[in-house]
């Protein structure tokens, strides 16, 4: 009898103590998960492919909720579900769906080995960030591509590759989701996430050099020298020159390609157009680069800017009011 009693008491008290510990631990270490995470995860494809750059769909859902608390889902995209899924996610999180105009990453540098001579040799960890700490790096251009491939490493979709011949990264437009990881990884901000454009056609200034014309020209044969010719020729006020660098506003650009022909440095490039009859839009060869140097002496930006403004205003057929709009 006694034995049974002891056993009951001992086991009972062990049970009680264990229950108490469990109860306290359950209180203390309780994990409160945001309900929204589960809801968002529900609409995701549950492929757990990791293509979004997060560990599985629940990881992505968590990131969405976190981003929503900050007010925007920018930069987050489920590559499997695409835009429709993201709209659903935005709906759950009480945000408006992002404008669905497709975008793509554009590398704004054409400083290939021929166009931009190497003046030094970099030795060290193969990382653009490391080379960036050494001033202008291997070339004399302090704004151009460093060529160590930080963007390639950042891309989760295998959409950006180094071209060993040019030493520049190339974007695979099919694969690019415009997530912006490469743009963030680039220490020089060369990569722009740009509107894909009508039929994927784009006209872009392939340069990021903010030095004055003479210095730019010394460093690279296809750099933008801020001569303002493109500004003058553009009928749609799509081109602005800021800090010695021309920029084409993708929303205003009507893809007329006049600027491309006008640019003495061949810094403006048109993508995905059918080949021109008289002059194919091929990547510039050193010969074309030299032609640019010959035709144009170093212009002074201030002088050129003054007549440029009225010139663009009068013949414009499609004047848009948003002149003050800052570029992205």
């Amino acid at each position: 009898m006694n034995v049974i009693l002891i056993a009951v008491i001992v086991l009972g008290s062990i049970g009680l103590v264990a229950a108490l510990i469990l109860f306290l631990a359950g209180k203390k270490f309780a994990v409160h998960e945001d309900e929204r995470i589960a809801k968002v995860a529900e609409v995701l494809p549950q492929a757990n492919c990791g293509g979004c750059g997060f560990p599985g769909c629940s990881g992505f859902a968590g990131a969405c909720v976190k981003a929503a608390d900050k007010g925007s889902l920018e930069g987050l995209l489920c590559p499997v579900g695409g835009q429709p899924v993201m709209e659903q996610v935005a709906g759950i999180l009480g945000l408006k769906a992002e404008a669905s105009a497709p975008k793509v990453a554009v590398v704004r540098c054409n400083g290939t080995c021929e166009n931009r001579p190497r003046i030094a040799e970099f030795d060290g960890a193969q990382s653009c960030k490391v080379q960036q700490m050494l001033g202008s790096g291997e070339t004399a251009c302090a704004y151009g591509c460093l060529g160590c491939g930080d963007c390639v490493a950042a891309c989760q979709f295998d959409a950006i590759r180094m071209n060993p011949e040019t030493g520049l990264p190339e974007v695979d437009e099919e694969k690019c989701t415009a997530c912006g990881a490469c743009a963030k990884a680039c220490p020089r901000g060369i990569i722009e996430i740009r509107l894909k454009g009508l039929k994927n056609r784009r006209v872009v200034v392939l340069c990021n050099n903010k030095d004055k014309g003479a210095q730019t020209r010394k460093a690279c044969s296809v750099g933008c020298i801020a001569c303002q010719k493109c500004v003058k020729v553009c009928k749609f006020e799509a081109i602005t020159v800021d800090q010695n660098l021309a920029h084409i506003d993708a929303e205003k650009c009507k893809l007329c390609r006049k600027c491309e022909d006008e640019c003495p440095q061949n810094a403006i490039h048109a993508f995905n157009f059918p080949p021109k009859k008289e002059k194919p839009a091929s990547p510039p060869t050193p010969l074309q680069g030299e032609r640019g140097v010959d035709t144009q002496a170093a212009p002074v930006t201030e002088k050129a800017a003054a007549p440029a403004a009225p010139a663009t205003e009068k013949p414009a057929t499609n004047v848009e009011p948003a002149k003050e709009q800052e570029k992205a």
């Binding site: 060290g124 960890a125 990382s127 960030k129 490391v130 700490m133």
Partner: peptide, 12 residues
């Protein structure tokens, strides 16, 4: 190994 190169990136 370029330890300091990497550490500088991390530090920055």
């Amino acid at each position: 190994r370029p330890l300091l190169d990497n550490i500088r990136v991390a530090k920055q």
